[in-house]
Design a protein around this nucleic acid. Structure first.
Length: 188
DNA sequence: CCTCCGATGTGCT
DNA sequence: GCACATCGGAGGC
């Protein structure tokens, strides 16, 4: 299964971490070695986890925030799916403590905010989300209507429509193009 | 050691 | 639309 199919398949599934459960509403696919926007495009100590087994959690920091991905494999591709937004369905009180006074639909909006609501930090790096214990992905239950578009804020390969979200969901973040975005025809 | 810079978030114009 | 807080990763020297 391709990383694009993996990304679509994560939508609507529930993810539980540190006392809060969200329904995943928005994701982005990162194609690894063939994707200039992926951290795995250059193989370094940080991106090494994406060359490992699937279903592990890749947590990284950017601008002082945490972002979480699920590694999808196969290992030679080093692909992963970034978790961009989720609707809080359990542990709302805890999520509010972590996020402060924001509207319900904004608690898990944006990859940094989602990790904050879920309490995900570097301590959760390399967790197998099928097993846990700190981060657990539930099996798929419902079919959802999926929309797609370009990924948010990436400079390279900015036109690849590799962002997927549940159509019409109020928790999905708004699209923002990188100020110096390159088109995907400039990929390599 | 130092510089650049980003898969961000927030606030202001 | 734009600025900037904020900080570790990555690479140049």
């Amino acid at each position: 299964m391709s990383v694009l199919e993996q990304a679509r398949g994560l939508l609507g599934r529930e993810l539980t971490a540190h006392g809060v459960t969200v329904r995943i509403t928005e994701v982005e696919a990162y194609g690894g070695v063939t994707d200039p926007a992926s951290h795995a495009y250059t193989r370094t100590a940080r991106s090494e986890i994406m060359y490992g087994p699937p279903w592990r959690l890749y947590v990284y920091r950017i601008h002082g925030h945490h972002c979480a991905n699920i590694v999808t494999g196969p290992s030679e591709e080093a692909a992963a799916v970034l978790l961009r937004a989720g609707e809080v369905v359990d542990g709302q009180e805890l999520a509010c403590e972590r996020r402060g006074e924001v509207p319900h639909e904004a608690l898990g909006r944006g990859p940094g905010n989602l990790c904050r609501a879920l309490g995900i930090t570097m301590a959760d790096l390399d967790i197998d989300v099928r097993v846990g214990p700190s981060v657990v992905l539930a099996p798929k239950v419902d079919d959802v209507s999926v929309s797609e578009g370009p990924r948010v804020g990436v400079r390279r390969a900015a036109d690849r429509p590799w962002r997927f979200w549940i159509t019409g969901d109020p928790t999905v973040s708004t699209y923002r193009r990188h100020a110096r975005a390159e088109s995907s025809s400039d990929d390599g």
